[in-house]
Amino acid sequence: MTVVALLSVAPVTEGSMGAEVAKAVDALEEFDVSYETNPMGTVIEAETIEELFSAARAAHEAVDGDRVSTVLKIDDKRTSDGSADEKVAAVEQELGREARSQ
């Protein structure tokens, strides 16, 4: 089974969040997950929901601050082992082009 999620971890702050977000992303290295960061969060793929939750928790705990906001959106398609890349490829096949602006 492959579990795919979108994780967004950020301190509630007025200034730049870059350094704290980098701590959250770096925390994922301790887990057997693959990930890709984008401007809105980090897409994570794990073999199990337990591994996904452990990685997300570590990312949340890695961020310093008096208040940390974390959003985790999970796609747990239990009848398929499709990866995030395969999901994007299916959309691109329907579009007949890359799923991004030219």
Results as ranks from 00 to 15, higher is better:
Asp64Lys: 11
Ile49Pro: 00
Pro11Tyr: 06
Val63Ala: 10
Arg78His: 04
Gly18Arg: 05
Asp66Cys: 02
Asp85Leu: 08
Asn38Pro: 00
Ile44Leu: 14
Ser83Arg: 08
Asn38Gln: 08
Leu7Ala: 05
Lys77Val: 14
Asp81Lys: 01
Asp85Ile: 05
Ser69Gln: 13
Val33Phe: 10
Ala84Gly: 01
Met40Arg: 02
Met40Tyr: 12
Asp64Trp: 01
Pro39Val: 09
Arg57Asp: 14
Asp64Pro: 12
Val3His: 11
Asp26Ile: 00
Val88Asp: 11
Val71Tyr: 12
Glu98Asp: 13
Met17Asn: 10
Val3Gln: 07
Ala5Met: 10
Val33Thr: 10
Thr13Tyr: 00
Leu52Trp: 02
Glu36Asn: 08
Met17Trp: 02
Lys73Arg: 08
Glu94Pro: 00
Ala58Lys: 07
Arg100Phe: 04
Ala46His: 04
Ser34Phe: 03
Val68His: 13
Thr79Asp: 15
Gly18Thr: 12
Glu98Arg: 13
Lys23Asn: 14
Ser83Asp: 06
Asp85Thr: 09
Ala62Pro: 03
Lys77Thr: 14
Val21Pro: 08
Glu51Gln: 11
Glu50Phe: 05
Asp81Ile: 01
Val68Asn: 11
Ala27Val: 04
Ile74Met: 05
Ala5Gln: 09
Asp66Phe: 02
Leu72Ser: 03
His60Ile: 06
Val4Lys: 08
Gly41Glu: 07
Pro39Trp: 09
Glu61Leu: 14
Gly15Ala: 14
Glu94Arg: 07
Val9Ala: 07
Ala58Trp: 03
Arg78Thr: 11
Asp81Met: 00
Glu20Gln: 15
Leu72Trp: 04
Ile74Phe: 03
Val68Met: 14
Gly82Arg: 11
Ser16Gln: 02
Val43Asp: 08
Leu95Pro: 01
Ile74Ala: 09
Ser83Lys: 02
Ser101Phe: 10
Val71Met: 12
Ala10Gly: 11
Gln93Cys: 00
Thr2Leu: 13
Glu51Asn: 01
Ala99Glu: 10
Ile74Asp: 07
Ser83Tyr: 01
Ala10Phe: 03
Arg78Ala: 10
Arg100Met: 11
Leu52His: 06
Asn38Asp: 13
Asp64Thr: 09
Ala5Trp: 05
Thr42Phe: 09
Lys73Gln: 13
Gly65Asn: 13
Met17Lys: 12
Leu95Gln: 03
Leu72Thr: 12
Glu51Thr: 15
Asp26Gly: 10
Glu92Ile: 06
Val3Cys: 10
Ser34Gly: 14
Leu6Cys: 03
Lys87Glu: 15
Gly41Ala: 06
Ala90Glu: 15
Glu50Leu: 11
Ala5Thr: 05
Ala99Leu: 14
Glu14Trp: 04
Ala10Asn: 15
Gly96Val: 06
Arg100Glu: 15
Glu98Gln: 10
